[in-house]
Write a protein that binds this DNA or RNA. Structure first.
Length: 648
DNA sequence: GTTTCGGTTCTTTTT
DNA sequence: GAACCGAAAC
């Protein structure tokens, strides 16, 4: 039995070893929130709670994995049976078991963004509504998603968004109803459906709800400030019987309200659970006091929050530096030279991170790192599993395992010359909506139905499934993809992509990655939910090299580095122009985002304030410094103006 | 009727 | 880069 009292500070100890019942842990940044959760899980297991009756909901799958790994080190191997993961992941797990109750087949597919967009586009076209004046598919999906995630009425959302440019909601509703129907027909769910259906399972089927209420003796929720109403209701329902609900969060760090997160969930928690024990974690172990001073000054401007003040434990070090720069290139120069300097001081590249508001803000920085041959990791805007070639490979597996995956069929068919969307649709309807990839007759039928130019290619693809089926007892999942590469895709990729080498390497990486799964189905059931961070921490790259991290602030949530650079602190960029235009709430959330960025840093913080940016068309745009920089009391930072490159 | 190709436009944040 | 649109090519 570990000595909890010795390994935790009094605040953490109280939270980790507290009695049953509703508990709210207000954990300011860097106060050992993860540590507390880890020890709470370990404590529960040590106290005799069966691990598989504990549910730990986290913001990323990686966070759950890391916490459970650490808890295992404290409390032993049994911890591995704790249910852990994101809300989407958990809902998926329930639905893979019970989706029939809601009218889905259990092998439903999960639609990613692109697939959702193209379905909505088709609906718009079918209804004859496409025009310049009609909202684009992505916008429609945004409305739909906002309605689902904030548990609001579509009409209200439409009214709020189109207060100025009024759209008749009937057409929008028509399209979105079409989208819903099509998803049903495809036996598919989008990300929002996972959450909503997961909740509906509990709402509509008392026996299922009771089963899980009894099953989970303890429910723990991380990053509770970023839950939306759907997620909050799901948690409330799951914990309703045993009432052993422990939520951890920091209202200062609520940065996802744009996707329905409502920090009122955390604010009102003590009201909803009258006997809540509230523990505050305010002792910060992460950052030097100079950084905390900046963070505290920043967040003090946001009113209406739980009062928390970060208390420093580390000795004084040096003040964060505000650097005024001419433009993005100078900014990149500056950061590169600082990296070199800090490395000479003994920091590793993996001790440093470069954070920014939006992916495209990293452009000059990335080029500079490439030129200087400084290795970097970047979770780019495009996710690994959303890239065309990776989806191609996945569809190959999907159609092998499913007889009704229209989307996978259509994707595969369109690799073939002379086949586009229409032809793919026709063949699929002639198949009667079902296709068995390993059935020679079905393969032949498709060959006969396709245009002549497509037949050679089709036979190559079909042969892969047949071979896989025949030799399946000796083969691991990745082997199908190896055959796919050599038997078809390499030749295809060379003609289809200019950077085909990179893409083929990615598929090789995917083949490696598949080795982690029991079988193809286990992989396919969850692939749509994998994020870059998940894939990365599973080290898809076999080379674990020292590299600097480039990331959006959102993706940096929960992480920390000794050295942090924040780029593009200019009005309109960070804070983002769109956000502050949207509503008064926008500025508050941007400020919380800045707070999150600042509190990632342990030792060194550099705030970069460029004055100019070259637009895409080559014209210059001039910027004033970010309000968040101007708000910092001058005595809390060092300020330097860099005029000429080379003199840092 | 479909597919393919080439030129144009625009980047918030993500499960 | 990649999504969109219009026009050429099949």
């Amino acid at each position: 039995m570990p000595d909890f009292e010795q390994e935790l500070n009094p605040e953490q100890f109280a939270a980790a070893t507290g009695p049953d019942g509703p508990t709210l842990v207000l954990a300011a940044a860097g106060t050992g929130k993860t540590r507390t959760l880890v020890y709470r899980v370990a404590y529960l297991v040590e106290s005799g709670v069966p691990p598989d009756r504990i549910l730990l909901l986290t913001f990323t799958n990686r966070a759950a994995r890391e916490m459970l790994e650490r808890a295992r080190q404290v409390a032993g191997p049994g911890v591995g049976n704790v249910w852990g993961g994101t809300f989407h992941h958990f809902a998926n797990r329930l639905l893979r078991k019970h989706a029939r109750q809601l009218g889905y087949a259990l092998d439903y597919t999960i639609l990613d963004r692109d697939e959702s967009v193209s379905i909505v586009k088709n609906c718009t076209k079918t209804l004859g509504l496409q025009s310049k004046a009609f909202p684009k598919a992505a916008v429609l999906l945004g409305i739909h998603s906002a309605a689902v995630n904030s548990d609001a009425d579509l009409n209200d959302i439409i009214e709020a968004r189109y207060a100025e440019h009024w759209h008749d909601p009937t057409d929008i509703l028509k399209v979105l109803n079409g989208y819903t129907e099509k998803k049903r027909q495809l036996n598919a769910m989008d990300f929002d459906d996972l959450l909503l259906n997961g909740l509906n399972l509990l709402r509509q089927h008392p026996s299922i709800e009771t089963y899980y209420q009894e099953r989970f003796l303890h429910v723990l929720v991380d990053e509770y400030q970023d839950t939306n109403p759907i997620q909050a209701e799901m948690v409330d329902r799951l914990a309703a019987l045993n009432r052993n609900l422990l939520v951890v969060g920091d209202d200062f760090q609520c940065i996802y309200s744009w996707r329905g997160a409502d920090h009122r969930n955390i604010m009102s928690f003590p009201d909803r659970y009258k006997d809540t024990r509230v523990t505050k974690l305010e002792t910060n172990y992460r950052s030097v006091p100079e950084i905390l001073n900046v963070a505290n000054a920043c967040i003090a401007r946001n009113k209406g929050q739980f009062k928390k003040t970060l208390r420093a434990t580390r000795p004084a070090y040096s003040k964060p530096v505000v650097v005024h720069l001419q433009d993005g290139d100078r900014q990149a120069d500056y950061v590169a030279s600082q990296i070199a300097m800090l490395r000479r001081e003994g920091y590793k590249l993996s001790d440093m991170a470069i954070l920014y508001r939006a992916h495209y803000h990293a452009l000059e920085m990335e080029l500079m790192l490439k030129r200087s041959q400084i290795p970097y990791f970047m979770t780019s805007g495009m996710r690994f599993f959303e890239q065309a070639h990776v989806k191609d490979a996945c569809c190959m597996l999907r159609l092998y395992r499913s007889k009704s995956d229209e989307l996978a069929f259509a994707r595969i068919a369109q690799w073939l010359p002379g086949v586009g969307q229409k032809t793919a649709e026709k063949v699929w309807s002639k198949l009667g909506g079902t296709f068995n990839a390993t059935d020679p007759d079905a393969q032949q039928f498709v060959a006969d139905t396709l245009p002549a130019a497509a037949r050679t290619g089709w036979k190559k693809i079909a042969a892969i499934w047949s071979t896989a089926e025949k030799e399946t007892h000796t083969r691991v999942p990745g082997d199908i993809l190896s055959m796919f590469l050599s038997g078809f895709y390499e030749a295809y990729a060379v003609n289809a992509f200019d950077n085909f080498e990179k893409r083929l390497e990615d598929i090789q990486g995917l083949i490696q990655y598949l080795g982690k799964f029991k079988d193809i189905d286990e992989f396919l059931n969850e692939v749509a939910l994998f994020t870059n961070l998940d894939a990365e921490s599973d080290s898809m790259d076999e080379t674990e090299q020292d590299a600097i991290r480039l990331s959006t602030v959102h993706q940096a949530k929960g992480l920390e580095w000794p050295v942090v650079f924040i780029l593009w602190l200019a009005e309109g960029l960070f804070p983002s122009g769109r956000s502050i235009a949207d509503s008064a709430e926008g500025e508050l959330e941007e400020r919380r985002l800045f707070y999150v960025a600042v509190t990632r840093a342990k030792d060194e913080l550099r705030l970069c304030v460029p004055a100019m940016r070259i637009n895409r068309d080559g014209s210059p745009a001039f910027y004033t410094p970010s309000r968040f920089v101007k708000e910092i009391p001058p005595k809390l930072v060092e300020t330097s103006k860099l005029k000429r490159p080379g003199f840092y």
